[in-house]
Design a protein around this nucleic acid. Structure first.
Lengths: 118, 118
DNA sequence: ATAATAGTTTGCCATATGGAAAACTATACG
DNA sequence: CGTATAGTTTTCCATATGGCAAACTATTAT
């Protein structure tokens, strides 16, 4: 139902979602070693082509891969910049966390909450 | 080195899935700045507490946060190590990609495929 | 003791996801 | 031409996700 869904879909939503599946992470890992056509990519996996194509579709929607069809063969390539986008977000978060000087103080405070108002 | 075949169920599934939602990423970002109780965390979001608790549950299952209840207040903390796990995976992938010496050749080849039959 | 607070549990609903099987399209190949 | 190959589309199904409202529990606060 669209009426109550705000859906400000951030591109990172799709990237992280794409990476949340082991098949798709494996495909990414494979494509990082070089481009490959659909059926060769699908070989290692125990599922039908239609199911596998859905994974490719999720990856392509996320921008992690791009594909092009020549004749009857669709070749898939990695789009490393998208991977970098995810890595960048994580790096920013880590920087935020590492930059904090009051993490210990915060822990102490959380202990103090045992006594609500001192 | 486990990484060249099909991955089965992996904790990374849960971490990336947790990060694929903007509400949950925002919660992570908030918690990186300091621990907080459920209702304070929930304040910025336009949804009921039950829905919000589901997000917290996803985060906790992923290991990205941990929570502890004192009295009637449940305090949530970030688990930065889990964030690092995701970042590490991405860094490994990037290293793989950056380590390849034939990326340019591959790119040129992909360009050539646009011309019918060299 | 009562009431407010902070979460939690329980139903319920619409949509998305991940898979299968079957039928189909479009290119190669012989 | 006919046939194998490489994808694609379609239909169907079970489960998961993300949200709501209402009822409930457990702790403070008055």
């Amino acid at each position: 139902m669209v009426s109550h869904m705000v859906n400000q879909s951030h591109p990172l939503d799709d990237v992280f979602h794409a990476l949340s599946d082991p098949t798709r992470r494996a495909v990414v890992g494979r494509l990082l070693k070089g481009a490959a056509p659909v059926s060769r990519l699908a070989e290692p996996f125990d599922m039908g082509l239609p199911a596998f194509m859905k994974h490719l579709s999720v990856l392509e929607t996320s921008g992690l891969i791009r594909t092009e069809k020549r004749g009857r063969v669709r070749t898939c390539h990695i789009e490393a910049a998208r991977l970098a986008a995810a890595e960048d977000w994580l790096a920013e978060q880590r920087a935020e966390w590492q930059g904090r000087s009051d993490r210990l103080a915060e822990f102490v405070e959380s202990q103090n909450r045992k006594e609500p108002k001192a």
